[in-house]
Design a binder for these strands. Structure first.
Lengths: 150, 150
DNA sequence: GATGGTTCGTCCAGAAACTGAACTTAGGTG
DNA sequence: CACCTAAGTTCAGTTTCTGGACGAACCATC
């Protein structure tokens, strides 16, 4: 299997991973959620090749995760903003952050804190069931083929 | 920045991405959550180079995400099982699945359904606040530096 | 005891991806 | 005019990934 074949698999993970499943794309998304919007800012913060920034931003724009919008004319300059589809990735990003906090935070603690504006508390993301609203763990779920299976 | 430098960043995303942020690693984890345990099974299901399977499984074992346990002697054969640290990745995997279901499922619907044993319903994962238990969206969160910041 | 099968790898040459550094474009500043 | 910014593009050299062959250790069958 090649990278490009992933998008054609009858699997939501494969199709998502085809878009976001690469080191730099995930780092770009992290920065996007932290408010970074400009090419130069992504490049400076990540310290990676401009080629890769160009390529990954283009992929994310093509997939509708980011939108490229001009913020000035003469010369025209663009910034990259998360679309709704991009914002929908927030649970993915937070789940990754939380796993890192759990298993890779030093004794100093988490590098970032997240405050839920509605209740005012620093929080951790908890995955719950959309039907009964209880927290869900890996062993409490049965997986089976759905209507979109091969 | 090089790939190996990611693990040293004061950022839980970077540290997690250093372990799981690569296409094939995420696909291996998907299969692991679906019950796949053996080298040959991973290789056959993914159809990728055996070299990569070897390398990724080794990384995941070194990181404590998978455990390599013998299931027979003469000849000794191992299988790869999710550890607790690996099971802790379930919210990450489910968040990715859900995003794929939302944005890449065809008209046929989701390729896989997930039933919550406790309530018996097929469900979607919902990210909620650990403190007030309400669902949380990207715009309802303020992020700031924590104790483990650089 | 020779042949073939299973499982879990290793090795290698060629292809693809990534890197750093220089260059381009289109304008703005002093 | 010389220098600066933002957003890329181009390119040679390096690293990583790929498919396919090969190896090791055992089992089954004839």
């Amino acid at each position: 299997m090649k990278w490009d074949d992933l998008a054609d698999q009858p699997c939501s993970i494969a199709r998502s991973v085809a878009v976001i499943g690469d080191r730099w794309t995930l780092m770009i998304l992290r920065d996007a959620f932290l408010g970074v919007r400009r090419f130069e800012a992504f490049q400076t913060r990540l310290g990676i090749s401009r080629t890769i920034i160009t390529e990954r931003l283009k992929l994310l724009v093509d997939e509708g995760v980011l939108a490229k919008v001009p913020y000035q004319d003469r010369p025209v300059r663009h910034e990259y903003r998360l679309t709704q589809k991009g914002l929908d990735l927030y649970p993915v990003v937070m789940a990754i952050v939380h796993w890192g906090d759990q298993h890779y935070a030093g004794q100093a603690g988490a590098p970032l804190l997240h405050r839920h504006k509605a209740c005012g508390c620093d929080f951790a993301p908890v995955m719950t069931c959309s039907e009964c609203h209880a927290p869900v763990g890996a062993r409490e779920v049965e997986t089976r083929a759905g209507p979109g299976a091969a």
